[in-house]
Amino acid sequence: MAVAARVAGVLLTAFFFGLTFEGIGRKVTARIQKRYGPPWYQNFIDVLKTLTKHGWTHGWIFDFGVVMALGGVIATLTFVPLGNFVAFPGLDNFFVIVYLFTVGALGMAMGMVGTGNPWASIGVARALTLMLGYEVPYLIVITSLLYNFKTSNISTIVEIQSVNGWNIFRFPIGALVAFICLQGMLGKEPFEAPIAPAEIASGPMVELSAKYMGLLMLMNTFMEFVEISIFVDLFLGGGNYFEFLLKYLTVWIFAIMISAVLPRFRIEQAVYFYWTVPLLLAFIQVFLVVAGM
């Protein structure tokens, strides 16, 4: 039963803190644009409002896709360690999390293209290409980390950091590359081509009426929660549950600030950028790891 309690704990933190931090993020963006911005609980209202509306479905593959997306991301969430609070102590292997994460992404992609709207297919094609862009430098840097600590288990890395300092200081370049890739993963401003509202009518979300939009907003929050918590676990070390949330908030605000001021990359520019600058930095990082420590 302890496992069920821990899993429920992780999910509720993700739900509650995910949406609150998004609300705070919207307030920070508003403040940057010199306006007050919505109350912090605005995201809760948005999600619940969409769940109460009467929408449309495009057939069983659309429903299955949305449910599979949310289910996949929830499953990934359960494996992610939040500081020292872990649902399954030994099992949070890095590759398992990254690839379980793609179950959600594939489910969403399949559901959205199932609607039959070409905007959605273009959006998904862009999302997959962008993924090809940011995933390679990200995995290189993280595997250099794993190679350094000789384990691909995130919770063990968290403990090591609580002993000898945060990784962000030992691998500054790695952290920088991971953060740039994080920006791409979150789908925040510079890399927002897949869900560009003006160009392709919010990409995959074009045919999402009422509750499907709500479910996918929830999924988006959980995805952001997973991505940032992996970044925090790997680079900002141990400490208990609340310290984790604090670090999570700082990283989140920092990402929001960047996205509030930057315009949007074209999709091939984004991939071209990812495969030049971060990949080069990743290689320097790898060289340091293999040669240095």
Partner: peptide, 8 residues
């Protein structure tokens, strides 16, 4: 994965 799917 099944549990997640169930919740969704």
């Amino acid at each position: 994965f099944a549990v997640g799917f169930l919740i969704a």
